[in-house]
Design a protein around this nucleic acid. Sequence first.
DNA 1: TATATTTGCGCAATCGTTTGTGCTATTTTT
DNA 2: AAAAATAGCACAAACGATTGCGCAAATATA
Lengths: 364, 364
Amino acid sequence: MKENLSSIAARLGVSVTTVSRVLSGNAAKYRISEDTAKKVQEEAAKCNYAPSILAQSLRRQQTKTIGLLTPSLANPYFAEMASVIISEIHSRGYTTLVIDTMEDESNYKNGFNQMISRQVDGILAVPCGKDSTIPELVNQDYVPVILVDRYYEDSSLPYVTTNNYKGGYDATRLLIEAGHKRIACIQGVRSSTPNNERVRGYRDALAEANLSDFALIAGNEFSIQNGYLEMKLILSRPVRPSAVFALSNNISLGVLKAIKEASLRVPEHISLISFDNYSYMDYMEPPITRVSQPVEDMALLATKLLFARVEGISPGASQLRLSPTIIRGESVARLSPAVAGALRTDFQMDRETIQDPELQDIIS
Amino acid sequence: MKENLSSIAARLGVSVTTVSRVLSGNAAKYRISEDTAKKVQEEAAKCNYAPSILAQSLRRQQTKTIGLLTPSLANPYFAEMASVIISEIHSRGYTTLVIDTMEDESNYKNGFNQMISRQVDGILAVPCGKDSTIPELVNQDYVPVILVDRYYEDSSLPYVTTNNYKGGYDATRLLIEAGHKRIACIQGVRSSTPNNERVRGYRDALAEANLSDFALIAGNEFSIQNGYLEMKLILSRPVRPSAVFALSNNISLGVLKAIKEASLRVPEHISLISFDNYSYMDYMEPPITRVSQPVEDMALLATKLLFARVEGISPGASQLRLSPTIIRGESVARLSPAVAGALRTDFQMDRETIQDPELQDIIS
DNA sequence: TATATTTGCGCAATCGTTTGTGCTATTTTT
DNA sequence: AAAAATAGCACAAACGATTGCGCAAATATA
């Protein structure tokens, strides 16, 4: 059924070596006669021969396979990223081994071992958790690793990410310039660098505008539920923020659900700006104003960096941040200065609202 | 750097065979003494040994790898499907090789060859195009193939799909029962079975209600653009339908865009029902009424069927259709009988509007 | 014609496992 | 104490490719 070099060789009365040399394009190099070469090629074509990549890989110590560790394909952000990465890898003649870590750190760590066992030639990974030892070990001792989207603070592993600080800062500025003074922020996983950078941008923008007294940072997951629950809590406060900065697409969905359940409307009663872009956001009511990450560019660049190392033209470690852009929807209300001023006085939100010990130092 | 059986064997002064037998759990079967076994295990653990799956695969003729051919990970419908499939495969100790065919038939066909070259143990595929020869050949001569979502009319290849006929029928019924009499349908790829089944359901529902005279079927792609352009055309007609049945999530987005650009509103001016479910649809204005396909169940079942064959407990070919459910949003207006009647008289859309020759016989 | 060179190809080792078979040393049986 | 049984392990072939080296025949050189 499955042809191999020796079946062809036997039929032609030549050696396996000869067949191999012809079919791998080394006929000239090894002085195989044109006659023989032609014979072999024709036979191979006729019987529809395809080499066993397994055997090739074992021999060449090179699998032509890249490993992709993604936190959740069900999230359109990562799905889009994966889509671009997979196509890009494919266009270079490699295939992709995908593991969905489901945002679980032990899945993530095991993922690396599995990739090593399968001897991928390189790994693209979106980290889960803050422990960089395994990826670093893999990168040093085995194959190149490039991080995408998230990265480790204290590590020299190369990564490609959005300039999340800028995203956080710009989004908050946009709200401030629209006259908002009580701006809440609902964040995602606190061990993730993008999250923390966004929060930092948020805080700096507030500080710059002397609005730090009203900083309110809640939440701990990039999920719909987290957005929903935290927004419920926020809405039950005596004094509400006039705007919310949701640090991911899913968080925004949860926020919207909570707002809707409270019979409030965006942006009339409360403004919303979200991180992450997704085509559906244009069709929502209202269309969501959002910080769009350059997903495609990130994916392309990460793949490029990886192949540079896989194929040996190794540049030093690169840690790249690409600028996000803001897509303006209609979810941010422009407050008249009068209203904004008025609102400000009755707002007494204070530091105690931040209960996470880990966050205290970020906020402090 | 990378440990292997012989490096361990050398260090311990035993044979590669012995190490292999211990580490693959066959110590007892081959009467390796407990002492030796323990020694080997400890050494393996200490040096962090992981077997080369490549070598194992070559020897065992089994790669513990499943191939997944998906048309577009950028589409949330397929992304969700892939997510479930990949997790399920992972939970069985296999990994997944993913190829995004980008809705291109030649990518799709090449995909099979690549999968064969890499000797996957089985293939899950969402077909592109109507030519079933390659998948059938692969299924017969190489490894089990299970189709998901789409399938081939004339083939006995096993598949798992939605009962698309029922989906098309139910959606149309819902519109009819809401009083609509001029119902347009914007379809996707005409070579795809789900599409044609949906259209058949639509037509049968219309026929049953004596509304076939108003059948209007347009479009040819499961894309936003197709939905947009076709809806533009429909809106430029002298007599507009009162409701549109969009045969996919992306088509609906295009339809909404066209409607918005015409300064019309859903459902006040025109009703919409869509195929495919996606969480964002609940947050749109209005929330979209839609036919939800049991994506997760389909993915689970397809994986289950595949493994039954991969692991030898081969049941005969199964061709399964799972029932869709309707999720009610607020995008369908209930027309009062008077209005519905009134509208009917001024509607003169006829058969000539259907220009695709291929479709003539479906429609006829 | 004898020697040197080139042409054309095959041998055999190798990548890292798995596994049927067989060999020796120990233990059990009679 | 001799024969039989068993325990404990190693040899070597195989999976399907790649590649350094070498050998014989054909051709070129002297």
